[in-house]
Structures are given as C-alpha cells and as structure tokens.
C-alpha cells in the first residue's frame, strides 16, 4: 500500500501504574492515506491529544505500533525521532506555538535551520507567509501578532519542510469564530493545493464541514469511522 502514510496498530497508552493506571488509549487502530484530511473528534479528556502525541512521536505508546510512510517508528532512537519529526511531520498546537523571541519569519524558517538545509528557506518561508496573507507581519516578533495570525504562522512553519503529515491539536480552540473559520479554510485549501496529509484534533466537528474521514474517540477507544467522500480535484 504505497499511498498509506500512517498506520496505527493496536495502540494502548497507559498513564500511571497499577490501581491508578489510566487507559488514555485502548487498542486504537486506523490508517490514513496520502493527502487525506482527517478529523479526530471527541469530548474533553477522551484521549484525542494523547493519540495525536503518539502519531507525532512526541510520546511512545505503551503497546502497539505507529507506522509512518511504512516505517515502524518504534525502531527509531531519540535523535532519529527528532530528525523524523523535523522532516516528516508538521505541528500546529492549540496555544501559542511560536517562539516569542523570534520574528514571524524566523519562526517559519526554524525547522529548516534545524534541518540544516537553509538554502532558499527564507524565500520559501516568505512565499508561504504571502499565501496566508502575513507578508507584512513577517519581521514582527511573534508575540506581537494576534492569535489568529499566530496560528497561520504556525501553519506556515508546519509546512516549510514539506512534511508527510501535518498534525494539529485543536488549532482553532483558542480563536474567535472569524479567525477560526479562516484557519480552517486555510488548512483545507492548503491540503487540497499542496497535497499534504492533515490530521486535526477538534471538539468542534461542525467547524470543518466536509472532510475525508472523521475518527471519533470516547474513553480512549475509537467508536466509529465516518468516511466522507469529497470530489477529487486533480
């Protein structure tokens, strides 16, 4: 299956031990195809962030495996995971994602600097910022831009290394409805235009309208797979 970018197989995540152990995830399995826009929904405390952290290799599952681009990620060591995250994954978090001590442009370029492939990085970052309408803000320190703008900057940063999967954890959770709508539309259009796979955690299913697949979890378990066909754009 060459176009399978993610495969989650039987993942458990247990926090704590013995009597106090919490099953944050219980036998979670699903897969994602290249270019899909996936929603993970569920109520607060259901395990959405935990699942996203497993996919993002920010934490390791207690049991089960996560395959990305066909690679068993449990075989990677710490440094390999870091460089894997850097080149294959893009992250957008709920709260301010940016380094306040860097400018907007520097934040977007940062993953490339970490990757040590800075050639043209600044130009590409500027192009991305232009796409999201922030070229005029790019030299501001990133704590000087609004919450909605910050999320758009984070989107640019998540894309600068042309990742296989972009992961977003409640990216609109902290925004007013107008900014939230802009952010959602931006992610969806970038998904369509650039073909990056998006996996987005939200508790507001409605906000996202049509998506390829919705994974609903409750108490750490997937309770249904909702698949929505969208018209294919070539």
């Amino acid at each position: 299956m060459p176009d399978l970018v993610l495969e989650v197989r039987g993942v458990d995540k247990i926090y704590g031990e013995a009597e106090t152990a919490i099953y944050a995830l219980k036998n979670v399995s699903f897969s994602v195809k290249k270019g899909e826009f996936i929603l993970i929904v569920g109520s607060s405390g259901s395990g959405k962030s935990t699942l996203l952290n497993m996919i993002g290799l920010l934490d390791r599952p207690t049991n089960g495996k996560v395959f990305i681009d066909g690679l068993d990620t449990s075989t990677l060591n710490d440094n390999q995971i870091s460089s894997f995250r850097n080149s294959k994954l893009g992250f957008i978090f709920q709260f301010s994602n940016l380094l306040a001590d860097l400018t907007v442009l520097e934040n977007v370029v940062l993953p490339r600097r970490i990757q040590k492939t800075d050639t043209n990085a600044v130009e590409e970052a500027k192009l991305l910022l232009k796409t999201v309408g922030l070229e005029s803000q790019m030299n501001k320190y990133s704590n000087k831009v609004s919450g909605g703008q910050a999320q758009r900057v984070a989107i640019c940063r998540s894309l600068i290394n042309k990742p296989t999967i972009v992961l977003a954890d409640e990216p609109t959770g902290n925004l007013d409805s107008v900014s939230a709508e802009t952010t959602v539309q931006l992610m969806k259009s970038l998904n369509r235009k650039l073909g990056h796979t998006f996996i987005v955690v939200t508790h507001d299913r409605q906000q996202f309208g049509d998506v390829d697949k919705v994974i609903t979890i409750r108490d750490g378990k997937i309770i249904e797979d909702e698949i929505t066909e969208i018209p294919t754009i070539t």
Partner: peptide, 9 residues
Amino acid sequence: IMRAIGSRR
C-alpha cells in the same frame, strides 16, 4: 516546541 519540530537534546 523546539523539540517537537526537531531539535535534539
């Protein structure tokens, strides 16, 4: 954030 986007220890 830096660790998430790829900085090593």
